[in-house]
Each structure stands twice: as C-alpha cells, then as structure tokens.
Design a protein around this nucleic acid. Structure first.
Lengths: 271, 271
DNA sequence: CCAAAAGTGTTCTCGGTACACCCATGC
DNA sequence: GCATGGGTGTACCGAGAACACTTTTGG
C-alpha cells in the first residue's frame, strides 16, 4: 500500500532535449496528451516546511513541477522521473494523493490574466498542450539539503518557497498544494513519514520541531518523545550534537527495516 | 474533503447512442482518450457485500463499469454520470480513491487469452480505444435495493457479484476492487460511511452485520452500539421491526445534518 | 551562578474491550 | 416454557494529555 518509497528507482529514458516549438508540435507523439503529473515536493529547512516551485519563461506566476507521462512508462515511473529532473534525487518517498480534473483548474480567477498574456495561451493553445488537462498529484518528502533545484530549458526559475508564504500560483496548484499538506498531516498521525524530510542524523528536539511545523501546533516534549520512541523505528547513536550554551542532545537515526515495517502497519482506533 | 456525496448531481449530457463502430472510430472526438474512469460500486444485500460488474458482448470475463470523460465535464461529473448510467441513481456517495496507470494493467496474465480472442483486441486495437489507458478509480456506496443494474448497448450483462466470490476479472480490475475495499475499511474506522449502504430505516443489529461484513470480523454487540450511538448521527424511531419469533428491534434512521458534519470531522490518535 | 535547552516519570481521563444478565416474541 | 435474538451496564486496560523538576553546557 505504501511501498512507493521502497521502489528502486528504475532510471527511465530521459526526455530528449527538444526545443519548445518541437515540443509544442510533436510532444504528443512521445507523451500521453491531456494527462499530466504534478509533484508537490516538500522539504524542510530552518524550521520551515517548503515546497519546490518552478516558473516558466515568459509567464508570471509559479507552478508545481510537472510533466507528461511517456507512453512507455508507468505513472509512478513518470512521477519519479519528473522529481528526478527537478531535484536530481532518486529513490525518494513519493506518493500519489489525488487526481485533479476540474474544468476550472485552468481558469483560476486569481491569475487568469497572467496566463492570457503568455505564450502558453498564444502558442500552446491550439496544440495538444492547449487541450484541457487532467493532473495526477504526487507528493514527495525529501531531504532539503540533498536536493539541488534544477530549472529545465523552459523554466525561468526553480526554487524553494515557504509554505507560509507562497507566491501567486498558476492553475489550481494552490489547491493541489493544500490537499497535499492535508494528506501529509493525516498520514503523519499514523505513520512516521516525517523522517523522510530530515538528514540521516537528527535530534529528538529537531524531529519534534518538524512535527510541530507540519501540524502547525505545539506538542508536549515528554509526550512526543515517549510516543515517537515507542514506535521503535529510531536508534539512539553514541553521539551528541553540540548546540552552543546548552545541554547536548543525543543524535538519532532511523532503522530502515523497522521503519518500512511501521509504514505498512498503520493502526487506528474505531472498529 | 469528503463532500462528494453532497454534491447535487448535475445531470450532464448523456452519451449519445452510437453504434460500436462509430464509437471506435469517432469516440475520441467527444471523449478524452487514454484516460478512463472505473467505478467500484458497492451494495449490500443478504449479509453480503456486493460489487456491480458488467461484461462485454463478445468478451469473456467481467469488469468494472467504466467510461470515458467527456471533454466538457469534470472527472467527478463523469464518475457520477457513469454510475448513473449503470444504476439509475443520482446523488450517491462517490469518492475518488486512486489512479491506476501501471503498464501491466492491460496485460493481466490471468486472462490475457480472453482479451486476445475478443473484438477488443481485433477491432479496438489500432483505434483510440486500443491505446494504453490510465484509469481513475472511484468507489460508490449505494443502497442495493434502489439500484437496477442496466447493461448498455455494448454489454452482455450487468450484475451484482459477491465480494467473496468474484468472477474472472479483466485488466487490473481485481486489484482496483481490492484497493477500493481497503479504502472503505480504513474509512469505516473513522467515519460512518457504511450508512450509505443501508435503506433509510434499519436496526442496530442490521448495521452491525454490515460493519462485520465489510471488516470481515465479528464485533461485540454492546460495544458496537455504544460506539455507533456515541457518534450522534443516528435517530431512534418510534418503530420496531418485526423479526419473527424474537424481540422486535428498534428502527433507526440517520440525521443527515449531523452525519455530514461527522463525515468532515475525522478524528484519530497520534499527534 | 545563570540562562537556555535537554532529559525524564506520574497522574488523570477517556475510549476500547471484555464480559453476563434480563427482556420480548412466536412457536 | 423454551429457543432465539434484542437490549443494557460494569470493570479493566492502555494510550493520550497534562504537568515539574533536574541536568548539562557555555558564557
């Protein structure tokens, strides 16, 4: 059920470099038209939850990194490829969370003007790219420091943004991000997915800050430690982190075997 | 988040009747190609959880009722329409649960032979229908007695099947059904979705049997009643059901206002 | 010695589970 | 009156939530 993160990333055929005109006129031969994948890529840095966004040349406003599905790859492979193209990362925690197919998704009233003045409207409209598109949403949790945001040749920029302070987003991508955040919050309650956002070694206070950031509330320190340790997925290391004029907290790492087991055993109350 | 069931079904333009040849050659003009919706429609009857399946003329094996998305309808509208076409029902509890896009989904080893000997392979292959298709899975919970399975003009049959005793399923539809069942089971733990499967009036023992059937285990009678009543979504009626040589159990109905509120407030343990 | 953060244990409450007796009905 | 199933209450247990003091460290 939740094995996405364990899948060994099969390196799929990378999209051939092609110029924009060629992509507009011939892309549909390689890709499935009218269906895209958008990845909500979360990172965590300086006590902030961040999302990786990209902007297009010639268009104001930002959007989620996305792409089309090659006719010969599965959608999961496509999602991993798209994520790899923007971050350089392989073998990350990546999960499908919802498919967005509202007719309004292209007509976000907040920024319709931005789109109308862009080449997306002028040139892509009329081609396969201008058709209505349904988008499969995936979210990824990655270690911030390992990812190097990479614009592609169509990008003006590709950068991290604070969840709390997002720029103007094109299409329905704000809604997609919100749904992704809700999904993580729910999942975090049952499964220790948050660990994917941290480096190999971390302290419990750091882990707690992450949880507090994602859930947007404070958590009692003692209860947090009791609960998180009771999951049995953490290993205490014989090292401490020096943090200035304070007591040095222990470093932990997580036991990937037990971690995978815990991910697949979500428990809950009720019947 | 879970408002699907509250949406007032907007009656969309029904698919024009067209013959199979026309559909094969021209359907892509009306519908989005390479993307379909498949509905796992659950009903409950005689203490059995049932799924509505259909079979194609000229093809052995069964599959989920599905269809394509009209270019002018949202995917949710499409799902409601497809469900309406097979059951005659509107305004039902319907939820998207996963999008299936494995390359293997068309090549289920268990029944490849069935497909190869069919017109689907001979005639549809080469047309837009023969292309690889990605499918958005929706599940519906409906009141069994209200639905009248309706084959369409391409169908050999359309009928209810016991979850415990499914026929040979084409494509990856068995996997789709299994994932739908798991989704319901998880959801049932947090939200009283099961009520959608029962008639307006029901007794607590009947409701309990439904839960036991879905979860595939027995539940203590006293604890079940305590818990289900504590949700506050049931109203006890001044009526009892006569059930032969036994004490007559009270009938209940559910308070739709409180019910909707309860659906949107899923609680849980954890942080 | 003082400020700041880490580490740790107990109590309370609530929900989940286990369990037993009496009641209504039709034969 | 008896068999069958419906209705109800109590005791135990574990997880979550509330809560305070001591220890380490650098300045």
């Amino acid at each position: 059920m939740c094995k996405n993160h364990t899948i060994i990333f099969t390196f799929v055929i990378m999209v051939q470099k092609m110029d924009m005109a060629d992509f507009i006129s011939n892309g549909f031969k390689q890709f499935i038209p009218q269906l895209s994948i958008d990845c909500t890529i979360f990172g965590y840095h300086e006590n902030q939850l961040k999302v990786l966004l990209r902007s297009w040349k010639g268009v104001d406003g930002w959007c989620l990194p996305g792409g089309y599905i090659d006719r010969s790859e599965s959608i999961e492979e496509a999602a991993h490829r798209i994520l790899n193209e923007r971050t350089g990362l392989t073998n990350v925690f990546l999960q499908q969370y919802y498919t967005f197919g509202d007719l309004r998704r292209l007509m976000n009233p907040g920024n319709e003007i931005l789109l109308k003045s862009s080449w997306l409207y002028k040139d892509a409209r009329g081609s396969w790219l201008g058709d209505r598109t349904i988008s499969i949403g995936y979210y990824a949790l990655i270690e911030f420091s390992k990812a190097v945001p990479k614009p592609d040749e169509f990008s003006k920029d590709c950068a991290w943004w604070d969840i709390q302070n997002l720029p103007v987003l094109l299409f329905d991508h704000e809604q997609m991000i919100n749904k992704a955040i809700n999904t993580i919050r729910t999942q975090l309650k049952y499964q220790p997915v948050g660990l994917n956002l941290l480096p190999n070694k971390f302290t419990l206070p750091e882990l707690q800050k992450l949880y507090e950031t994602i859930l947007d509330r404070t958590i009692d320190r003692r209860n947090f430690q009791k609960k998180i340790l009771s999951l049995g997925v953490l290993k205490r290391l014989d090292q401490r982190r020096k943090i200035g004029a304070h007591r040095s907290p222990s470093l932990f790492t997580f036991d990937k075997v037990k971690y995978k087991r815990a991910l697949s055993e979500s428990k809950g109350p009720g019947f």
